[in-house]
Nucleic acid binder design. Structure first.
Lengths: 224, 224
DNA sequence: AGCTGTGAATATGTTCACAGCG
DNA sequence: CGCTGTGAACATATTCACAGCT
């Protein structure tokens, strides 16, 4: 268990995920070792940033050599909590819920959707693969029985706050929220918002501005 | 056209989207005016932050009173470039693409998916609503004819880089990218990544850590 | 009196640059 | 000799605190 040297930021954590994915790619390409500069190139950041990010969790590199691909992968998985299986409850059996249920990258990371809930009686009882859609009033028992600490919320905004509170009451500690509203939950509950319209709006802003002002001397243009 | 006072950060822009949505809610609730503190409460930030964010773009408030809901909504839409319609090309007619095609919040913001492309011949020719799925070799003509400057990429990683380059060559300036890989494009092209597995991993990290260390005296706990 | 708009102070995140290990 | 690990320098973002309009 590596000792933590200083507090990693949210952005550091998100980059760790990117490093992990990059390492998997490098592994498939047959590389057994990777320098901070190589990793940085793959994820679009700087070598110093890679080293600083990793240094929060330990000393994984070898001076003069770089990082060994396979062991670092293991370390990152452990740091991110991906060395275990995570049962997940999906609330909302609509289009987005369905897409996420099929999303291959969740399973590859140990996230397994073990239950689906929906308030629409027409959907209740249907099966998606192995999983049968349950009615909302089974929320508590399902979360409890399946020991789910993670939930994905893909329901319209009008039910979201109540459902989120019910999930927390039942034992959920982390929520991936697709409802376009700010959930009000105790601070110890981790909420990640995915706001798709907002992402488009950020693009729209950038393009809209483009004509009138560009003063970004952008550092992203690679070196070498 | 409000004068820009200093450079707004990426996070400022994202909060503007949240303010806009909050204002719409307030409007529906019949409020005609909103203080920075009220807005802050709705989107989970501080009053000072709201004022600072808005001040980058102009002076929209009245001292002693706050902001008028309807006019500020209009200003925000204009700032974000939402006073116009944005034709969007969707590349990838899979589960996620389908969910986004139906996503109601895009249309409400002026984003209209005017074309769908897919490399699977079995899908080409099918219709989703008014829109027929086109083969990939029509990419250039479709982007050009529909004057699409925005694209949404929901394809597996192995084709993504090439498709992104083709989109850019055809005139696209902004991409919402769901492929879990770092696109390498000219710096003037705006790319927003939505990495769903990464979002889950960030949750996993937080929960995993939870047992061993919690030193977040979290500012989010409201001020009475 | 109330609430905005904004410089100044603080906190946080990133980059530099180099000592030191392999 | 190369590349990591890291304090120190720098840059950016947030919060404070208050002058100034309404």
């Amino acid at each position: 268990m590596p000792r933590r040297r200083s507090k990693p930021s949210e952005s550091t954590i998100r980059r760790l995920s990117l490093y992990l994915r990059a390492l998997e790619g490098l592994g498939e390409e047959g590389e057994s070792t990777a320098s901070s500069e190589l990793l940085a190139g793959r994820v679009g950041t700087t070598a110093a940033q890679v080293r600083k990010d990793l240094s929060h969790f330990g000393s994984f590199g070898k001076r003069g050599l770089g990082y060994e691909v396979a062991p670092l992968q293991v370390h990152l998985k452990e740091i991110l909590g991906l060395h275990r299986r995570w049962p997940v409850v999906l609330v909302g059996a609509g289009r987005i819920g369905s897409a996420l249920f099929e999303y291959p990258h969740f399973g590859a990371r140990g996230f397994e959707i073990v239950a689906i809930l929906d308030r629409d009686p027409a959907k209740v009882g249907r099966r998606w693969g192995e999983v049968e859609i349950s009615p909302m009033d089974e929320l508590e028992s399902v979360v409890h029985d399946r020991k789910a600490e993670l939930a994905i919320l893909t329901i319209p905004w009008d039910g979201a706050q109540d459902v989120a509170e019910a999930l927390v009451a039942a034992g959920v500690r982390g929520i991936l929220n697709f409802a376009p509203l700010q959930l009000r939950l105790p601070p110890e509950i981790e909420v990640n918002d995915v706001n798709l319209a907002l992402e488009m709006e950020a693009l729209s802003f950038a393009l809209h501005l483009g004509g009138s002002q560009v003063d970004g001397v952008d550092a992203r243009s690679g070196e070498g």
